[in-house]
Amino acid sequence: MATVNLVYFAWVRERIGRAEETLELPDGIVTAGDLLAHLKTLGEEYETALEHENVIRVAINQEHVEHDEPIAGAREIALFPPMTGG
C-alpha cells in the first residue's frame, strides 16, 4: 500500500467532483498510467473524467511527466486536461 496526494484541475476536477484527495493505492501500481487505470475503477465520476486517458496530463511534484513515469515516492500527483493559458 502506498498513499498518494492527488490534485485535479479544470474539467478533470469538475467531473471527479473534488479538487484534491489522498488515496491508498493497492500494490502493483507502478506508473502514472497504472494510476489512471486504477482510478477509473473507483466509480463513474472517475470513469467520466478519465475516459479519454490519452489527453489527461500528469504532473509529479509539480513537473510534467509522461504516462509511463514511475510514481514511487511522489509527494503530489496532479491530473489535468491540456493547458489553455496565455
Binding site: A59, T84, G86
Partner: peptide, 14 residues
C-alpha cells in the same frame, strides 16, 4: 516563451 507558456504552463480557461 509564449509558445511554451500556452502549451505547458498549467492554466485553463473557461
Amino acid at each position: 516563451i509564449m509558445d511554451f507558456l500556452k502549451t505547458s504552463a498549467p492554466f485553463w480557461k473557461k
